[in-house]
Each structure stands twice: as C-alpha cells, then as structure tokens.
Amino acid sequence: MDSLNIEPTEFTPRINFDPENNLFEISGFSRPENVIGFFRPILKWLDEYSDSVLSRNIDFNKSLLTVNLRMTYFNSASSKFILDILLEFMKYHSRGNEILINWYYEEGDDEIQESGEEISDMLGYPFDFIPY
C-alpha cells in the first residue's frame, strides 16, 4: 500500500503515514478551514490500511506500529479528528498489534502536554511524553 504524505500549510499539519516502516506521523499546526475535508481522507486511508494490510497479516507476531504526534497547536475541531485517528489505532491494538504512541511537546508548553494527557486518558491508553 502507498504511503500517505500531506505537506503542511499555514493551517494544516504534515502527515506522513509510512506503512512499510509501520510509522505514522502527524506534526505541526492544525486549524483547517474545512476540518472534515482535511481529516476525512486520512481516516479513509486508515480504513484501507486496516483492510488491505493489517487484515492480511496472519502471522502470530503482529507488527509494532509507532505513532508520532508532534503538534504545535490544534483547535478543538481538530482534536476531535486526532482522537478519531487514534481510535483507529486502538482498533488495531485490539486486533493484536502493539501500538507505541509518542506525544512530543515543546519544553514548557503546558497546553500541548496537557492536551496529550487528556487524549491519552480518553483512550485509556498510555502515551510516551517526550519534551523537545
């Protein structure tokens, strides 16, 4: 399956989903004018990834999937979609994949750190918090 690469804009984050290396990264800034239009194709890609890659892996040992979130700001509408994306990974986890979620935040940026803690709490899944 092809990777998903979306270049950042003034209003939208960078997306690099690399299924070959089991690496999924979202970084930057998110307050899209059309939040549904931006995030829906990403959720669709994750659906296809689940169907065409994860479901076909019948090995006993499933892959470790690494999610790196390095956000500098996201608005409340984006937070809903970031949660939806991570809920997809929770589905993969329930089907046997190990999931590592790294939440990066700028040293001293309590807002981003706390947002990560809240999302982790909502998912009931621990994140690794990494200051930079």
Binding site: P32, N34, V35, I36, S76, A77, S79, K80
Partner: peptide
C-alpha cells in the same frame, strides 16, 4: 462534528 466543523467544543 457539524458540517461547519464545530464540534461543540469551542
């Protein structure tokens, strides 16, 4: 999320 993107969260 409403069609305008508001999630009632603002």
């Amino acid at each position: 999320v409403s069609p305008k993107g508001g999630a009632g969260l603002g």
